[in-house]
Design a protein around this nucleic acid. Structure first.
Length: 273
DNA sequence: CTGTTCTCCTGTGGGC
DNA sequence: TGCCCACAGGAGAACA
């Protein structure tokens, strides 16, 4: 499931291969993603140059002269680059090909189709999906002065609040669990009960764990080119996520699994208070 | 405004 | 070995 580090790694993996290139056509095999892929996307993008590639939250943004293509990988989406004359036949869930004039193909693959590929004839910051997003977790804007009043206004479990895009973007289920473990904070604690030290710890650990995962992704960048995609994303070592009943890596006590707001939550009752 | 529930979809894995 | 089915999960949308 692509979390922010995977999306960032995807961006770095594809950007050098498509930036500055001209779209020749777009093949849409399955338009029914989270939202319908615009039917006329190929006509819209034909002869248009990909000016730049960027990321906001877990959205990838391809910048064109007259608008943007917005890509979200949902939870099973991936992007691959195929070099000219090296493009394999499309597989079952290869829903969209962006074909460049030089033959390079950017292929969107998404078995569960929770992702999105959209066109917006305007600036990225004006798109309704992007304009009300909270700060990036790795930015300086995401700091103690910013977060403290927002947490104090919430009674929900801290884990739920961390996953709220109005508080901070890009912290999904896995990294919410991981950063709370690293901070010694139990996921069900009401957000307004965290003290200043804990908030500082949490911010530090969110940045740390995301940054580390992005650095791990750096060694897999070649996987985005001419790969069959089966290797998938890098395997991150998780400290609590998915470790139900396994010994805590700090104290050896079994890891608990509970459901908070319909999401699997893992924690050590001994290390996290 | 906060908070909760529903929804999209298919691969996986447990139960039998 | 095969069938059935609950389940996971990002995050917007709808609603209380």
């Amino acid at each position: 499931m692509p979390e922010l580090p995977e999306v960032e790694t995807t961006l770095r993996g594809i950007a050098p291969h498509i930036t500055g290139k001209t779209i020749h056509r777009v093949h849409i095999r399955q338009p029914k993603l989270r939202w319908l892929v615009p039917e006329n996307l190929s006509e819209t993008l034909c002869h248009q140059v990909i000016l730049s590639c960027s990321r906001r939250a877990k959205y990838l943004i391809l910048q064109f002269e007259h608008g943007i293509v917005l890509i979200h990988l949902g939870m099973s989406g991936s992007l691959r680059i195929f070099t000219p004359d090296n493009v394999p036949l499309a597989g079952k869930h290869d829903h969209i090909d962006f074909e460049c004039a030089d033959g390079t193909v950017l292929r969107y693959h998404d078995p569960r189709r929770f992702g999105a590929v959209l066109w917006y004839a305007g600036a990225a910051e004006h798109h309704h999906l992007l304009q009300s997003l909270a700060p990036e977790p790795l930015s300086d804007e995401f700091n103690i002065a910013y977060l403290t009043p927002l947490l104090n206004a919430r009674r929900q479990p801290i884990k739920t609040v961390l996953m709220d895009n109005k508080i901070v973007v890009g912290v999904g289920n896995i990294y919410a669990n991981e950063s709370l473990f690293l901070s010694g904070i139990t996921p069900q604690r009401p957000a307004n009960q965290l003290n200043a030290t804990e908030i500082a710890q949490l911010i530090h650990n969110i940045k740390q764990v995301l940054q580390r995962a992005i650095e791990c992704g750096g060694s897999t960048l070649r996987d985005f080119v001419d790969s069959n995609g089966k290797s998938g994303y890098f395997q991150q070592e998780y400290r609590v996520y998915g470790r139900h009943n396994q010994p805590c890596l700090q104290c050896g006590m079994p890891i608990h699994k509970i459901v908070i707001a319909q999401r699997a939550s893992f924690y050590c009752a001994n290390c996290q208070k």
